[in-house]
């Protein structure tokens, strides 16, 4: 895919029909007009506005919101918490769903497609519903609270904490990883595993030396998507508790509660940059890993 992107549109066409190249260029331009208009109207303009707004004075500190963000403990803690939570979710989702996906790809059993359907079902839920489900599990009236009350006489509640968020994010991250890992395992060359085994490799050794390196690009990219989704997830967090130190909640709070548009913009830009960087890094790592195997 990268090879086609590196080549300008229709390059081969221009080489073969040099005389027609001007007209073709014009046609290309005209064809791009709708896309460029959309790009300018719905992305470029609002985003430049956002970028500039973040440089304006913060309502409370009076200096540029970017600077305020970088110098105030409260925002830095939010930033660190969001990144750590997202990282933890990504690592846990890749570890748990990686094994599950590998197992599902390699074994055929009765009811398998039903199980896959159930496991991937959370993809269909919006964040609010996922939050609601976490409350059903770990809220004050949740299943865990009821059980612990009956067993130990006290309510165990985790839904309204960062751990609740972690569970909720994990819930919608796992299906993505499972489907990606299953596809990657199906594409693995089975004779590599057979070759390793013929040389005496145990199942664990095959897993470590052949399978994990083989699906590493898929694990990296799906992990990055989990990270990006968790960084920006709003519905679940909003359902579980508006006071949690999470960037999307901060952004919401800044512009609805305090009308602090500069800070909301600055936080948005930072959130976007981190997510974009994670995705770009994962793409690069994944393409390197692929490049080595071809």
């Amino acid at each position: 895919m990268s090879a086609t992107l590196k080549q300008p549109f229709g390059a081969a066409f221009f080489d073969r029909h040099r005389c027609a190249s001007h007209r073709a260029k014009l046609t290309t331009l005209i064809a791009l007009v709708p896309a460029l208009t959309l790009f300018a109207a719905f992305w470029l303009l609002p985003f430049s506005r956002l970028l500039l707004m973040g440089a304006e004075a913060d309502r409370s500190s009076g200096v540029s919101a970017y600077l305020t963000l970088l110098t105030h403990r409260q925002y830095l803690i939010s930033l660190a918490t969001t990144v750590t939570l997202s990282l933890a979710v990504s690592v846990a989702a890749v570890a748990i769903a990686g094994f599950a996906g590998f197992f599902l790809a390699r074994h055929r059993f009765a009811g398998q497609s039903l199980l896959v359907a159930i496991l991937t079902f959370p993809l269909a839920f919006p964040g609010v519903v996922v939050g609601f489900l976490v409350i059903m599990l770990g809220g004050r009236q949740g299943a865990l609270a009821q059980t612990s009350l009956w067993l130990f006489g006290e309510r165990w509640v985790f839904a309204y904490s960062l751990f609740g968020l972690f569970i909720g994010y994990l819930y919608f991250s796992i299906p993505r990883v499972i489907t990606t890992v299953m596809a990657a395992c199906d594409n693995l060359d089975q004779s590599l595993e057979e070759a390793a085994r013929s040389l005496g490799a145990s199942h664990w050794r095959v897993m470590r030396d052949v399978i994990i390196p083989g699906i590493a690009p898929a694990l990296l990219s799906t992990g990055a998507i989990c990270f990006a989704t968790s960084m920006g997830a709003f519905g679940t967090a909003f359902t579980l508790g508006t006071r949690l130190p999470i960037l999307p909640l901060n952004i919401y709070g800044e512009f609805t509660n305090y009308a602090n548009f500069a800070m909301a913009a600055a936080l948005s830009v930072v959130l976007g940059l981190i997510t974009w960087a994670a995705l770009a890094l994962a793409r690069k790592l994944a393409s390197n890993a692929l490049g080595a195997s071809v």
Binding site: S191, L199, G200, V210
Partner: peptide
């Protein structure tokens, strides 16, 4: 015995070399 305990060497059509 599974293959890993049989002490066999195998050569495949598609080479099956470890790309990493």
């Amino acid at each position: 015995l599974p293959i890993e305990k049989r002490d066999v060497g195998m050569v495949f059509q598609n080479y099956a070399l470890f790309p990493n």
